[in-house]
Design a protein around this nucleic acid. Structure first.
Lengths: 245, 245
DNA sequence: GAACCGTAGTTGGTTTGACCAATGCGGTCA
DNA sequence: TGACCGCATTGGTCAAACCAACTACGGTTC
């Protein structure tokens, strides 16, 4: 390892060393603990009160540090005895928060978000089809089957749909793309659900959506990347067309 | 203001609505304020005490929210009179922060970052070619010409190359894609430059790169989206192949 | 003995109120 | 005029308390 060990997010700090804030100190100490192996994925951190005592700071300062780690997706928090703060096994998507604010700041429209999603998903679909990931295919078929159960409402369908699209991108094997897609998707989750509910003739709509998903699965099974790509694009674009102006 | 003001959606929250934490509420409110234009880049936020009073929460809770925003690179904080918390001018950079962070923690590799770039850029190239954006084409040609000036070193070339690729994506007209691409590029900027310098036979390499860029421009001019897409993919992939293992 | 239930203790969530520490502005004094 | 000093503002930090989930354990009941 180099002498320039990877450090927790403190890009170019203009702050003098002696005025480092308490929570930054805590982040450093925790980083050390992780680097030394003292703390590993899945481990539970000491309680907030413990950490405060160990590091000689107050609990609010500890909490600020924990909020940072949480925002970065590194820890998860649950309250109650035998619960507490744990280092995540799989770091969680830190992009979700950022996406929200980025969209707000740029006053980005839902349309451009959807377009962005299409770019990623169509790429992923093409790749999955070309590679022929059997595992992904199985998962997609499972979601598809679930979508077919009679009487499924909009809410239930929506979560299966989300899982389907996420799995599709995950199948491409690019963690970054997966995270970004997930974040962009959750950013319009509510809008998406509203759009689903607003559709006239729900059973008919549902059947159509199921057919479209099935088409994508077929194209992937056939190893036809171009078709898979195109079908995903059409699927998403068609769905949103009538809701965007 | 309406009782149901337009809001961006929140990421799937497993927490019941009534147990949302105070700082999350604050994040929502700030997001609203930003989305509505009440707060914009460069603006100074009300003081912590003000925010606490406005939102009816305590100052520590406000501070937790601010730490999240700070971790995401959205605000900068300075203490003292006439200072305070300000929304950063260039929120796009926030993505770069996070990307770098992911890289540092090995949650993502340079390879997957490059692959991700390819996904976005090839999509953009296809779109630009199909739409035939004359403006974009002109800008790309300008960058290309600049790349041809004799004696151009790696550093100079690199910045022109960056501008070329950024302009390509910008031409697709999707701000989100542009921001994300820019961030993913700056995150590996240093690595990229190192790779350029490490290439044997710089003049030869440069000529090859220029030819590849020219090929993309030609395909766009010809309106051949598929070719443009493929050429961009090949261009980026080839460049990085020998540097990733 | 097994299923149930309530209570105690642990842990995060939040508030209050206080004081410290930078920083810039404006007034004062040489 | 210019250097200086203090005050107001704002972030940084702490202490102590209470609330709210949640688990585990022990007692109760069948």
């Amino acid at each position: 390892m180099s002498d320039r060990s990877p450090r927790l997010d403190r890009p170019a700090d203009d702050r003098p060393a002696d005025s480092r804030r308490a929570f930054e100190e805590i982040l450093d100490r925790l980083e050390q603990a992780i680097a030394s192996g003292e703390l590993g994925p899945g481990d539970r951190l000491p309680s907030e009160r413990d950490l405060a005592a160990r590091f000689g700071v107050s609990r609010p300062s500890v909490r600020e540090a924990l909020r940072v780690l949480e925002a970065l997706g590194l820890v998860s928090v649950r309250r109650g005895a035998e619960h507490g703060v744990t280092l995540r096994e799989e770091p969680q998507n830190a992009f979700a928060h950022l996406f929200r604010f980025h969209l707000a700041l740029n006053h980005t429209s839902v349309a451009s978000l959807v377009e962005f999603r299409v770019a990623i998903e169509s790429w992923a679909a093409g790749l999955v089809a070309a590679r022929g990931g059997a595992e992904t295919l199985g998962e997609l078929e499972r979601q598809l089957d679930a979508m077919r159960q009679p009487g499924l409402g909009q809410v239930g369908f929506h979560s299966l749909d989300a899982a389907f699209h996420l799995e599709l991108v995950r199948g491409a094997g690019n963690e970054l793309a997966t995270s970004v897609l997930e974040a962009s998707r959750t950013a319009i989750q509510r809008t998406m659900l509203a759009a689903l509910v607003a559709k006239a003739d729900w059973p008919g709509t549902r059947d159509r959506l199921v057919r479209e998903h099935a088409g994508v699965v077929d194209a992937i099974r056939a190893g036809d990347g171009a078709a898979a790509s195109r079908l995903v694009t059409d699927h998403v674009t068609t769905f949103w067309r009538e809701h965007l102006d």
